[in-house]
């Protein structure tokens, strides 16, 4: 039983580390704030959660504590990234529009409409 739990935990930890690595790569590689936030948050939410659950499975004494941590990450990480993205949008940081100028016009239209409201 313990062996199975340990292997399961190790698999989860490996998945978590892969996602965290991809998140870091995304933050390095993506062109603008919004894309970076997307890569960073999604990857760290899943990566951190599966990593902590994996640790909880390897050490069964810590399982409930790790579950509390996972709930905390599930609540706080999306909210904080939402707040960051919203403040970036509100302070008029332009998204990345290379090669798609018609989308840039649509974006400007939406911003103007929001300002008039």
């Amino acid at each position: 039983m313990n062996q199975i739990l340990e292997i399961l935990g190790l698999i989860l930890i490996i998945i978590g580390s892969i996602f965290l690595f991809l998140g870091a790569l995304g933050i390095y590689r993506m062109p603008d704030v919004y894309n970076r936030l997307q890569a960073g948050t999604k990857a760290t939410t899943l990566g951190g959660m599966s990593l902590i659950i994996g640790v909880g499975l390897i050490q069964p004494d810590w399982f409930w504590k790790s579950l509390i941590l996972v709930i905390f990450i599930a609540l706080s990480n999306p909210i904080s990234s939402h707040a960051l993205a919203r403040s970036a949008y509100k302070s008029k940081i332009k998204p990345f529009f290379k090669g798609k100028e018609e989308d840039l016009d649509a974006y400007k239209e939406v911003v103007e409409r929001n300002e008039n409201n």
């Binding site: 609540l75 909210i79 939402h82």
Partner: peptide
């Protein structure tokens, strides 16, 4: 500069 959104407010209330 501006108020926090409803998501942030309810999340803060919860946390």
């Amino acid at each position: 500069l501006f108020n926090a959104s409803t998501i942030v407010r309810s999340g803060a209330h919860l946390l």
